[in-house]
Simulated assay, not measured.
Amino acid sequence: MSDEPKNRRFLTIGQAAEELNVSPVQVRALLKTGELRGIQVGGRGQWRIGANDVEDFITEGYRRTAEHIASGEITDDGEEGAEQA
């Protein structure tokens, strides 16, 4: 969301993907599974995602990750930026 104001109420799939640093295909998958809330508008059913819903998704992701860390379920999978032992 480079030159656009960050105070928009709704984001397109592309804008939400940029915010989450994932592909638009991944955002569509999250919408279809209900992990990310969104609405379809217009005759063509274009998706719009509330900016607050993106923030809620991120907050929930942090909560789930903290739970997994606390339970020992998180392992180093060699993800970009992860330190290798």
Score class of each variant (00 low, 15 high):
75 T>V: 15
57 F>P: 05
19 E>R: 15
9 R>M: 05
38 G>P: 01
64 R>A: 10
20 L>W: 04
53 D>S: 14
4 E>H: 10
12 T>M: 00
74 I>P: 00
23 S>K: 05
2 S>K: 14
51 A>K: 12
41 V>R: 05
79 E>W: 08
41 V>I: 14
72 G>F: 05
34 G>F: 06
16 A>L: 09
46 Q>A: 11
40 Q>M: 08
1 M>P: 08
40 Q>C: 05
55 E>W: 07
21 N>H: 08
12 T>P: 02
2 S>P: 11
27 V>S: 04
58 I>E: 14
3 D>A: 15
70 A>I: 06
70 A>K: 12
43 G>A: 11
62 Y>E: 12
75 T>K: 15
42 G>I: 06
12 T>V: 02
23 S>C: 03
17 A>Q: 05
48 R>M: 12
14 G>I: 03
49 I>G: 02
71 S>Q: 12
38 G>K: 10
66 A>T: 03
28 R>G: 08
27 V>P: 13
17 A>C: 03
22 V>L: 01
82 A>K: 09
9 R>E: 15
21 N>D: 13
57 F>D: 03
84 Q>N: 10
8 R>A: 09
13 I>H: 00
14 G>F: 01
8 R>N: 10
1 M>K: 08
78 G>Q: 03
34 G>I: 10
17 A>M: 03
67 E>M: 09
66 A>I: 00
40 Q>Y: 01
76 D>M: 07
54 V>Q: 06
82 A>L: 11
25 V>L: 06
81 G>I: 04
41 V>G: 04
53 D>L: 05
83 E>Q: 06
20 L>P: 06
24 P>T: 00
36 L>I: 08
19 E>Q: 14
11 L>C: 07
16 A>I: 09
59 T>L: 12
65 T>N: 11
17 A>I: 02
39 I>N: 01
2 S>I: 07
22 V>N: 01
10 F>V: 14
33 T>L: 00
72 G>T: 03
84 Q>C: 10
50 G>D: 14
41 V>A: 06
11 L>K: 08
